[in-house]
């Protein structure tokens, strides 16, 4: 029992994920700065931001719905944390797993976006409402490619459990290469999910200030921000588990370091992507996702089906 609490609250649960989230944010910001030929923030900057926000006043707008407004950051925080438990990190076995946990993880990862939407919508400010509308429109654009891109490897493995998928790819390492296109698609979708350039449309600061989070301040904003950081880690861990399923059999120490490297590699790819392109417009983003990314994901699904048919024969 104590072990379970330890796992949930400290390692690899709440505390570890929060610290890793802040660390990943630092890594992302520092790398971005380096790529832009800047110096970048010092290592404690994300933590300092978090602590500073905790100390700030919590302002709830008069016209906002206080219940929804305050509930949403907590919901985003817990949803990402829960999703983390089903992802295999440094061993083939996740903290908890059952057949179908892949679907649960994907849905839990959708919840933060929904909380942005609800939080922004119930803040009743024009900027946050436009941001909320945009984030929900964007959700429909990237979610399907993401699901398809992750479904294809799952179908290949013949299971909907993430832990069993890692076991399958452990015994068929060469099939990972087949998923490379899906990896790229999932990365693009993850950019949309994390609202990073070129898909930072819901929080485009030069257009709608901070989008859904415009009215948030103090502790609530701090929790939203750490939830976004954690979402980045969880999303990257998911991609690492599905598309980079190697190095699970070397014991804890090496496996753990490999896990960190894999997640930071995915984060680095996201940072690189956001430094080399401009932000798209919402209509362009929808076009891009539906006309290029989603068909590509479908095509890969078909390819995977064919390959699976050939192998099983």
């Amino acid at each position: 029992m104590i072990n379970v609490f330890f796992n949930i609250l400290i390692f690899p649960g709440l505390i570890f994920l929060s610290i890793f989230g802040l660390g990943a944010e630092y890594f992302d910001r520092k790398l971005c700065a380096k790529l832009q030929n800047r110096v970048g923030p010092p290592w404690f900057q994300p933590l300092a931001d978090f602590i500073k926000l905790l100390a700030k006043e919590n302002v709830i707008p008069n016209q906002a719905d206080p219940t929804v407004f305050t509930l949403m950051p907590v919901l985003a925080f817990t949803a990402t944390l829960t999703a983390f438990f089903y992802i295999p990190l440094w061993q083939t076995k996740a903290l908890s797993s059952f057949n179908g946990d892949l679907i649960v993880v994907l849905y839990l990862l959708t919840i933060p976006t929904l909380t942005f939407f609800l939080g922004g919508w119930y803040a009743r400010s024009v900027f946050s409402m436009i941001g909320a509308a945009r984030s929900i429109i964007q959700l429909f654009a990237y979610e399907i490619p993401l699901f398809l891109a992750i479904l294809a490897p799952a179908m290949m493995a013949g299971t909907l459990s993430l832990s069993e998928m890692t076991v399958f790819y452990g015994s068929h390492p060469w099939l990972v290469l087949l998923n490379l296109v899906d990896f790229v698609i999932a990365l693009v979708a993850l950019l949309g999910k994390l609202e990073k350039t070129p898909f930072d449309i819901p929080e485009a600061e030069t257009e709608i200030v901070a989008g859904c989070l415009t009215e948030y301040s103090g502790r609530l904003l701090a929790f939203f921000r750490i939830a976004i950081d954690m979402e980045m880690v969880v999303g990257s861990s998911l991609l690492a588990a599905v598309f980079l399923p190697f190095g699970f059999n070397f014991g804890f120490a090496i496996g753990f370091i490999l896990y960190l490297v894999k997640v930071l590699f995915v984060v680095a790819l996201l940072s690189l992507a956001r430094t080399i392109v401009a932000r798209l417009r919402i209509d362009q983003m929808i076009n891009f996702c539906w006309k290029i990314v989603a068909p590509a994901a479908f095509l890969m699904l078909v390819v995977d089906l064919v390959v699976k048919g050939l192998i099983s024969r």
Binding site: Q36, N37, T197, D200, A278, R279
Partner: peptide
């Protein structure tokens, strides 16, 4: 247009 690298 959200292209901060060009700015930098």
């Amino acid at each position: 247009i959200g292209f901060d690298t060009l700015l930098m």
